[in-house]
Simulated scan of single mutants.
Amino acid sequence: MGRVFVAGSINMDVVATAERHPRIGETVAGEAVLYFPGGKGANQAVASAKLGIATTLIGRLGADAFGKELRTFLAGQGVDLTFVRDTDGAHSSTAIITLANADNTIVVVPGANGLVDADDVAAPVLARGDVAVSQFEIPLPAIAAFFRRARAVGATTILNPAPAKQADKALLDLVDILVLNETELGYLTGTGLRDSDTPERFSEAARALGQGRIVCVTLGKRGVLALVDNQPLLVPGREVKAVDTTGAGDCFVGALASQLAIGKPLGDALAYANAAASICVQRMGAAPSMPTADEVSAVLSTRRPGEGRDP
């Protein structure tokens, strides 16, 4: 059985809830201010750990009150924090989130996350069968160094290129599985995409990124479209009442990594991750909303015919 290693961001999410999002230059009255552990790296690590998979997080925290709270929370979720460093002179990363009608806007102030470097990702020892995960909330050179080490020992690499930014071909060439939403897909391919577009439209765009890797496009309630050897695989979504979508993509990535680490076929792993994300959006917060293995199993016990088959 493999392990999951996540090199990534750790944030404190400061969430302001309101009836609607303000327009540019407008002030609206909020309803509440909430504090949740988050950051794409931390979210993905918690998602994997809560599903019972040995999961190690690699990153940095500031030497401040948020850093102490985040470390305590992550340890309580079963995440191995051996390679999370406290950084003097830097604040812990903070995400300012406005939540209205289950949709969010997010501004991230990187802090210690922006200091993660090649030395940080060189510390853990990976092995064949492990899964190495990262996202774009830490410096790209650190991600490249992490994936080079993973590839050298035969570990699987998963990149979630969010928030969207341009990455060079050398980094993408180190990626086995690319997981992104339609906005990120449109940005990386220079294609105008909408969430209402057909699966064929998403497949066409994904082919520009699919050389030598699997591309998974998460489509919210519509499910996920995977391009495997240039052939599309559509895993249907699940209709649920969303409360907060903040950590849904991270839940999907962490759950996918967890299932691949234990040797599940891709189709089954995608269906499992899709089910996990459908639970996540029904709760407030990012990392605290990640489901347990028992909760995902309960949802999958009602799976539709044909769902979760390997391509």
Rank of each mutant, 00 (worst) to 15 (best):
L178R: 13
L178H: 15
L178Q: 14
L178S: 11
L178E: 15
V179L: 10
V179R: 07
L180V: 09
L180N: 04
L180W: 10
N181F: 12
N181A: 07
N181C: 09
N181K: 05
N181T: 09
N181M: 09
N181L: 10
N181R: 05
E182D: 12
E182A: 05
E182F: 12
E182Q: 09
E182K: 02
T183E: 06
T183A: 07
T183C: 03
T183K: 03
E184L: 04
E184C: 05
E184Y: 10
L185G: 01
L185Y: 00
L185K: 00
G186V: 08
G186A: 06
G186S: 09
G186D: 09
G186P: 08
G186Q: 07
Y187A: 02
Y187M: 01
L188V: 07
L188W: 12
L188H: 11
L188F: 11
L188D: 05
T189I: 04
T189H: 00
T189M: 00
T189K: 00
T189L: 00
G190C: 05
G190K: 00
G190N: 04
G190R: 00
G190V: 02
T191K: 01
G192I: 06
G192E: 11
G192M: 03
G192P: 03
L193H: 06
L193M: 10
L193Q: 05
L193A: 06
L193T: 05
R194P: 04
R194H: 13
D195Q: 04
D195M: 04
D195E: 07
D195I: 06
S196Y: 14
D197T: 10
D197C: 05
D197M: 08
T198P: 09
T198G: 08
T198S: 15
T198K: 13
T198R: 12
T198Q: 14
P199N: 14
P199C: 14
E200L: 13
E200V: 14
E200M: 13
E200G: 13
E200P: 11
E200I: 14
E200N: 11
R201E: 10
R201L: 10
R201A: 12
R201F: 14
F202G: 01
F202K: 02
F202C: 03
F202R: 01
S203M: 11
S203E: 15
S203I: 08
E204D: 10
A205G: 02
A205W: 02
A205P: 03
A205C: 03
A205E: 01
A205N: 01
A206V: 02
A206L: 04
A206R: 00
A206P: 04
R207F: 11
R207E: 11
R207A: 11
R207M: 09
A208M: 11
A208V: 09
L209K: 03
L209H: 08
L209M: 09
G210T: 02
G210K: 00
G210M: 03
G210R: 00
G210Y: 09
G210E: 06
G210V: 01
G210A: 13
G210H: 06
Q211I: 06
Q211C: 03
Q211W: 11
Q211P: 07
G212L: 08
G212V: 07
G212Q: 07
R213N: 12
R213G: 10
R213S: 12
I214M: 11
I214T: 14
V215L: 08
V215P: 07
C216R: 01
C216D: 04
V217D: 03
V217Y: 07
T218R: 08
T218S: 09
T218F: 15
L219E: 07
L219N: 02
L219A: 05
G220E: 10
G220Q: 10
